[in-house]
Design a protein around this nucleic acid. Structure first.
Length: 470
DNA sequence: TCTGGGGTCCTAGGACCC
DNA sequence: TCTGGGGTCCTAGGACCC
């Protein structure tokens, strides 16, 4: 499929122009937006901690705070040792007020509102935008600009975001997603790096290997033992050796380091799982405390699933025991459901296995999601009946008890039905599939009418009217 | 060294099915 | 009952990303 060039492509050589936008210290930037006095002060935004407490972890440290050695993922307690809180320093003669900083708890819903403003700008700039996280997105701008314009276009995007929203972004432009990602990171904060096709290998050559997307601490250490320190080393390593050591991922990072990355920028699909977790102030073996926590996490997860119109077929828990052993347990149901009480029951049931254990953290997750919206988009249907009835065994008791109408209905339109099924003449395996065909509709609603989004609504409501653009 | 929360993907073994 | 071969699904754990 190479060779031929489509007349329509924006670039001469058929490559794409991918942009990665990464907001700088986003949480801290948001806090400064609504509290301008924090500008240029050492600022730490911490998760899982209440003001005045010392448990939790650093979500974002401003660059001023980083100069004190505070960094993301660091324990708040350690951050406080390196950078005391201003308030404490004022009272404490042993501390220097000038060597202290500000701490704020994470406020996701506020950051999300700021993020939405940024994403709106991004969506104006490109047809295809993939939002990776609250502060990060890829854009395919092949049809919007040429390489000659990339530098100026990137600068314009940055200043537009800064002017309209008030936060700084770093931007990388490159022929692939992985190169664009590294490029945006290369000159942070407030960076703009353009890597043109043909320059990718050189650009990567001297970078530490852990800057390659997909190389984390474990892999980097292992690569180091193999004498691979830089992305350039990785690009020249023996691919077979990498494949042996790291499997498929080995080939992936090898290709990334060589500037090869065939992934296309596509909008993010629907979530595959939803979870909620929470840590105890210290490890506990108090059964009531554990169960209470699991119960409230289960409620919260089920709530979120409902609000997203998601049905779940698998319910699981996560239990972290000292020193830091992660255990997961999961139970699948015969079919997708939306039943909060079931999430709680199953989660508590799975927790039983850890009775008596000291636990520092618990989590609840629902997965194998399906959506009633009917817009499966990217993920075509494997869902449907595949669940197979046989697994019902013990679990069957669950659904029987429910007085609800069979929840399974919502699953897609049986329409396409993978041809594969045909071979298995319909014996009972399909049982649960059958029932859904008839009683469709019940759930009603659905109304795929582009729910959310509804961008035009213009319900600016409260939020930051002061920042109103134009 | 162990501090948080929310995700994704891959792998490996077991159970089952034909 | 074992022998052979192919395949799927489920669970659990690991690594990674932000």
């Amino acid at each position: 499929m190479d060779g031929e060039r489509l007349p329509g492509t924006a670039t001469d050589d058929g490559t794409r122009i991918v942009t990665h936008v990464d907001m700088d210290c986003f949480y801290a930037a948001c806090e400064r937006l609504r509290e301008p006095a924090l500008e240029s002060q050492p600022l730490v935004v911490g998760m899982g901690f209440e003001p005045g407490e010392t448990i939790g972890a650093v979500a974002t440290a401003s660059y001023e705070a980083r100069e004190y050695g505070v960094d993301s993922a660091m324990a708040i307690s350690e951050a406080l040792e390196r950078l005391p809180r201003k308030i404490d320093a004022i009272d404490d003669p042993h501390l220097d007020v000038d060597e202290a900083g500000f701490y704020r708890p994470v406020d996701m819903s506020y950051y999300e509102s700021v993020s939405a403003e940024v994403k709106e700008i991004l969506n104006e700039r490109a047809d295809v935008v993939r939002e990776v996280s609250i502060d990060e997105a890829y854009l395919d701008v092949s049809d919007e600009i040429s390489w000659d314009e990339a530098e100026e276009w990137g600068a314009q995007l940055k200043s537009d975001i800064e002017d309209a929203v008030g936060v700084a972004a770093s931007v990388g432009v490159a022929p692939t997603m992985s190169a664009a990602k590294v490029a945006s990171d290369h000159d942070k904060p407030d960076g703009l790096v353009v890597v043109e096709p043909g320059g990718v290998r050189d650009f990567f050559a001297d970078l530490p290997v852990d800057e390659v997307h997909g190389v984390g601490p474990v892999t980097a250490a292992e690569l180091g033992e193999m004498g691979i320190e830089t992305a350039g080393d990785l690009a020249e390593a023996d691919p077979d050796t990498l494949a042996d050591r790291f499997g498929e991922r080995g080939m992936e990072i090898y290709r990334y380091a060589r500037g090869e990355d065939e992934r296309e920028v596509t909008p993010r699909g629907l979530p595959k799982s939803l979870s909620r977790e929470s840590a105890f102030a210290s490890a506990t073996s108090d059964e009531d405390a554990k169960r209470d926590r699991v119960r409230s996490l289960a409620d919260s997860v089920a709530d979120r699933a409902t609000s997203k119109d998601a049905l779940y077929q698998t319910i699981g828990i996560k239990v972290v025991t000292p020193p830091y052993d992660v255990h997961t347990r999961a139970h699948s149901l015969p079919g997708p459901v939306d039943e909060p009480s079931l999430v709680e029951d199953v989660a508590l049931d799975l927790l039983e296995e850890f009775r008596g254990d000291r636990v520092r953290k618990v989590g609840v997750r629902v997965s194998k999601l399906s959506f009633s919206g009917g817009d499966q988009s990217s993920l075509d249907g494997f869902e449907s009946a595949t669940g197979s009835a046989e697994s019902a065994d013990s679990t069957s008791s669950f659904e029987r008890s429910s007085h609800e109408p069979s929840p399974t209905n919502a699953t897609t339109d049986d329409g396409p039905v993978s041809e594969g099924q045909a071979s298995l003449d319909g014996f009972e395996a399909m049982a649960d599939g059958t029932d859904r065909s008839d009683d469709d509709s019940p759930t009603g609603s659905t109304g795929d009418d582009a729910d959310d989004e509804a961008a035009e609504s213009g319900r600016s409501s409260d939020g930051q009217s002061t920042l109103g653009e134009f």
